[in-house]
């Protein structure tokens, strides 16, 4: 005989807890994936670096520096 009495309530709560866990893990994975995606496709990120960056100068890329 089981020591504790199982109730439908426990099953529902367990299901809910597992569901929330899965959703939270999926959210973390999505935010992580987004961060990586933004960093790998992020030419624009360099725009926030307030100094001259040769990579940001189209003229410099073709040999006609815009300075």
């Amino acid at each position: 005989m089981a020591l504790t009495r199982e109730h439908d309530l426990h099953k529902r709560r367990q299901g809910r807890n597992i569901g929330v866990l899965v959703v939270l893990l999926a959210f973390v994975a999505l935010v992580f994936g987004l961060t990586i995606a933004k960093m790998t496709t992020g030419d624009q990120l360099q725009g926030f670096d307030h100094t001259y960056r040769i990579e940001m100068d189209p003229g410099a890329r073709t040999g006609e520096a815009g300075q």
């Binding site: 009495r5 109730h7 309530l9 529902r12």
Partner: peptide, 22 residues
Amino acid sequence: TDIRADIADQSGPGDAGFGDYV
């Protein structure tokens, strides 16, 4: 004390399953 047995009778409208929220 078997806490789980204590709360077993307190099932109410707030105890929805995950599917209900979906």
